[in-house]
Every structure is written in C-alpha cells, then in structure tokens.
Design a protein around this nucleic acid. Structure first.
Lengths: 331, 331
DNA sequence: TTGTAGGCGTTATCAC
DNA sequence: GTGATAACGCCTACAA
C-alpha cells in the first residue's frame, strides 16, 4: 500500500497538497491538482482510514445491537440499517446480544475503543446509568430502554387494541393473549392494548393471559395448556408472529381448526407469517422503514451534532390473511 | 477519554512502562506494575484501538459478505461467524452484496482501507483477478468462487443425489427439478447430482428442469407452469428450502396435494422448512457448523500466517418431514 | 527494570 | 497556492 508521502514524492509536492486534493479542501492549482491525481491513479493510492480515524476521533462505523439475528424479525431491520449507513459511507457492525446485559456492555466498550460513531440498540436491559457518560450518539429501536434514549418504535398499544378489536368484530367471545417477555417494552405495550380492549368484558379472566418469550417453542407449550384449560377460547391475540407459529402448531396438535374453531391474530408482519398454513393475520409493522428511520436519525445526530431530534412512533397496519374468520352465528 | 500519557504521568512512569503492563510484554517491576494498574483503574483508562490498529496495520475486524441477510439461510451463518470472531476478540462486519459485483468490490476496498484482517465471502461473482493482489486472508463459504480461494462447503452433488435417490425409493416415477441460479456453484452441483440420478431414466426429459433463482416467487411461477405442462410429475427436487415454499404454494394453487399426489424434497434445512404445511423433507446442511468452521479457519490464517489450511466439504443429512410420502402402488 | 524517541498515515495550522 | 510540522494515541527498538 502506498501512502500519501509516496504520492507527494512522486508528484513533487508536499503531503499537505496531496491531502488538499483528496479532501477537496483549500486552494490548489489546477495543474498541480491534475498532476497529483495522475500519481494517485498511477500508484493506486487509497487513503488509510485508520490514520484518518485516529486523527479525527471518528471511525465512520455504526453498530446495530439486536438480541439474535436468527430471530426472523431482525434481518429486515438489519438490512435497512445497513443500506442506509452504507449509502452514507459508513461501515455496518452487527452485534448479537442474546438480551444479555453483560454482552451488551462488552460490545459497547469494545466499540467505543474503536471510535464507533453511533449505535442503534434493540435492547431491554440497557439502563440509563450505563449509557449516561457515553458521548457517542445512541438511539433505541423497536423498544424503549430504561433510559431517556431517543427511540423509533411503533404504536404497539394501539395496534394491539386494533387487533383485539378486529377479533371482536369477527364475533370472538373469548379472546386469550400469548404475551411477550415482560422485559420488552413492546411486549408490555401490546399486553396493555389487549387489556384495554378486554378487561371490561364479563368473560375476561386473567387465566386467558399466558407468558411467552417471543419464541416458537415456549409459545407452543403455553398455548397447549391454555387451550386445554380453556376449551371455550375462540380467539388468540399473539404478541408476535414467531410465537403465532407455535400457537398454530399447538392448535394443530390439539386438532383445533384455525380459523374455523379458533381465530389467531398476531403482530409484526414478518415474511414467515405468509408461509404458514393458515397464513397469519397480523398487525404489520413497517419493519424496514423503522430501521431506515433509526439509521437516518442516528446519522443526522452524528453529522450535525447540534440538531435536536425526536422520538418517532410509526403506525402498524392490519393485514388479513387466513388465520382469522368471521364466526357464523348459529341460526 | 484518558490516554496512555495520562496514566504514565499519574503513575510517575513512562508511557513505555504503561504499554508494557497493558500488553504484558517485557519486564516490569511488580510494584510499578501494581501502581500502574491502580491508576488505570482510577482513570478507567482503555487503550485506543484505532491508534493500535494504525501502528500494527491490523484492525481486529473481520467481515462476512452475504447476498442478502433477509434470505433466511444467512442469519444462521452470520450468527456462527459472529459468535466465533467475537470469542476471539474480533469485531464483526456484515455486508449485503445483492450478488452485485460492484457492491462487493466497493465493500472490499472500503474494508481494506480500514485494515480489515480477513473476509469470508458467500459470492458467485468474485473472480480470481479481483482478489489476487489482496494480501488479507479471504475464504469462501457455501459456494466456490471463480478463483482458488480456500472454501468451506457442503457435498452438494452427493446430497442432491441422495435426495433424488430417496424419492425414487419412495416410488416416484417422474422427478422434476427446480434449479438454483446457474451462477452459484452450489446450484450447479445440486443440478449435477440430480442429473446423475435421473439422466438415464427413460422418462427423463429436459423439460423437467426449471430454472429458479433461490427465491420463493420465481419458484412459484416456474413450478406452476412446470406442473401444468407435466401433470404426471410425482416428485420435485427443489434446489433450496426457500424455493420449496414457492413450490408448495404453486401446488396448493393447482389443488395438487403434497405429499399425496406430489412429493417435494429440498435442500438446506433452514428453520422455515419446519413451519410450512406440510413441513419440508430436506437435505439439511450443518449451517451453523460451516459458518463456524469458516471463521475458525480464517482466524487461523490470520493469526498464524504460516499454517497451510485446506478447503473443507461437510456432509448433509436427510431430514424426513411431511412433504414426501411413499407411493401406494395400485393393487 | 525503565525511559527516550521515532514512526504508523492523516489532517490542519501556520507561515511563506 | 504551497510547504513544513505538530498533533492523533500507541508501540517498540534502543539506550541507560
């Protein structure tokens, strides 16, 4: 690799001049500029980003923290963030945290040592004190952390409400809820929305709520007992699509027909929900879009430190597929 | 952020000494070491990795190139690579290339400027000349590139053969193939395996082969015409699980029952295949394992430049689920 | 056992 | 317009 000095020597100018042409900063004579560019071409010179970073204290890298990229909700988010950061000339770093605060902090410190320019967090465990003395821009995505971070989220509560409302319209009389992990703000909000819609009903009972953890297997298990304990349930609002897959499996194993005997609606709108059978009716998040917005906001904060930015809450949208159906009233 | 100089000053030693204790290199008196460590603690000093990188010419970062992380085959691979590199103290960079050679080269150059230590490529388009003058270790994963890169792959041809062989055992008499993109070595090998097993059969016809591109939608389209043109087909070997989802949809839309009237077997063993209905019979790759191995080999090459390493080909395994069934012979 | 000093490749601030 | 040169923070000969 040739350095700026090599270029300078060959072009018979100083490194300062070379620096000026590659950065298009300051004055430089047209002819010398030309000469320098020729030499750069000839030597196939590329500036060393590490040296640049050292000088500037910035690395042109941003990181995304997700619990686990193998959870199908996150690839789309990651893709969005990568696309945007890449377009702005930043390098994208992916960190799987397994919701483990230790891991999160380890990553964070490692990245800080690398002069990371900003981070986007999908996290429940990060506390305010852990990030308070960090001066690099950080924003929260999909969830709200226990801190005052700017966040890009979705109207979980209202979306949940609409989902449950839709099931009521369909004629469901006993609607259960498979909840997400209580540690996730999104899960708590969805539960709230469910309760808002259902708490006043005379049929409602706390036993209609079962705790899942946003994973298929756990949802399968709890749904099975739920349905055994309460055979009269005719609708389930599931806190995310992934768990709904488990719910579908549980229903199938109990020979309960979806949607004929049981309507299932969930949340997220991941691709996976289109391929199940029946395909999932769901409240779809604009996943790519919120990832995009998070990245855009972060870059804004990085590149113009002065500007104030605001949290954003985006809208979800009901997508009706095959797992819900209007109940036929007995005549 | 305090620097090594701050530590030195406060500990009343030279920076060299501080450097020695943080790197555990060279001699340093027990008492001074203690003193230095106290100060490090007190100042919460962390060495600046950028400065280190500049000096060493290494960044402790490795990158993984995949076509698109939204394709469900790749998250598991990415997770494996991230886990291993992270365990070794490296930072993980993810690059989505969309199989676009321009993008690949742009990423590559950008990363080289950042003193990347190594790269793992899932790529078809990278040619030998494009990487020949790169001295950082690169290895190929899942596919073989048009170059002499060390690769970690799976026995695609033999696996395909076994898959088709299995369908024959089930009694299938007309087995079609939905192929992957010809640009991918994995797709070509699977096609070969299919042909090996089928070419000699008197029923075989080239029209039993349709070109897909490893995506659901295209597979759906081509399968529909395939099945319309050849209603006597009773088995399909699909080049990957994702396309098999499209195949299942196509069959459903044609009211063809899987597996009763049509057996479907595919390749990859991604989680998605468990959630379809019917669940996919497939030749499963040890996805996480090959990602892990690729990372391990790469790190080996990075940390001990001398050692010679070899390409690896791992075994696939038949997983029988619901999309295949023995044909009942007419009595 | 410890310290001094040069260098990794850039950029930016001065002079000229 | 251009050129020295001092940082950026760290590491490692080489001296002492």
């Amino acid at each position: 690799m040739s350095t700026i000095r090599d270029v300078a020597k060959l072009a018979k100018v100083s490194v300062a001049t070379v620096s000026r042409v590659i950065n298009e900063s300051g004055y430089v004579n047209v002819k010398t500029k030309q000469k320098v560019e020729e030499v750069i071409e000839e030597l196939d010179y590329r500036p060393n980003d590490v040296a640049r970073s050292l000088f500037k204290g910035k690395s042109k890298m941003i990181a995304l923290f997700v619990p686990d990229i193998m959870n199908p909700f996150f690839p789309e988010l990651a893709r969005a963030v990568e696309d945007i950061t890449n377009k702005h000339g930043y390098t994208f770093i992916l960190c799987n945290t397994d919701n483990d605060n230790k891991k999160e902090m380890a990553y964070m410190n490692a990245l800080l040592q690398k002069s990371i320019d900003g981070m986007i967090l999908v996290s429940n465990t990060m506390t305010a004190s852990q990030i308070k003395d960090t001066k690099v821009p950080i924003i929260s995505l999909d969830r709200k952390t226990r801190s005052d971070l700017i966040s890009v989220t979705v109207n979980n509560r209202e979306g949940a409400r609409q989902a449950v409302g839709y099931m009521k319209e369909l004629g469901c009389k006993r609607i259960a809820h498979i909840a997400g992990p209580d540690s996730a703000s999104s899960a708590r909000s969805r539960m709230e929305g469910y309760l808002n819609e259902v708490q006043e009903e005379k049929w409602f009972s706390n036993s209609f709520i079962r705790a899942g953890n946003y994973s298929i297997d756990e949802a399968y298990k709890v749904t099975k007992t739920l349905l055994k304990d309460n055979p009269n349930i005719d609708g389930i609002f599931v806190a995310n699509d992934l768990m709904a897959v488990g719910v579908l499996k549980a229903a199938a194993s109990l020979k309960i027909k979806v949607p004929d005997e049981l309507s299932v609606i969930s949340f997220d709108g991941i691709k996976l929900g289109e391929t199940t059978s029946p395909a999932l009716t769901t409240m779809a998040q604009p996943i790519y879009h919120i990832g995009k917005r998070a990245a855009e906001i972060l870059l804004e904060k990085i590149e113009k430190p002065g500007t104030v930015i605001q949290s954003e809450e985006h809208q979800v949208q009901l997508i009706i597929r095959e797992s819900t159906r209007e109940k036929r009233l007995k005549e």
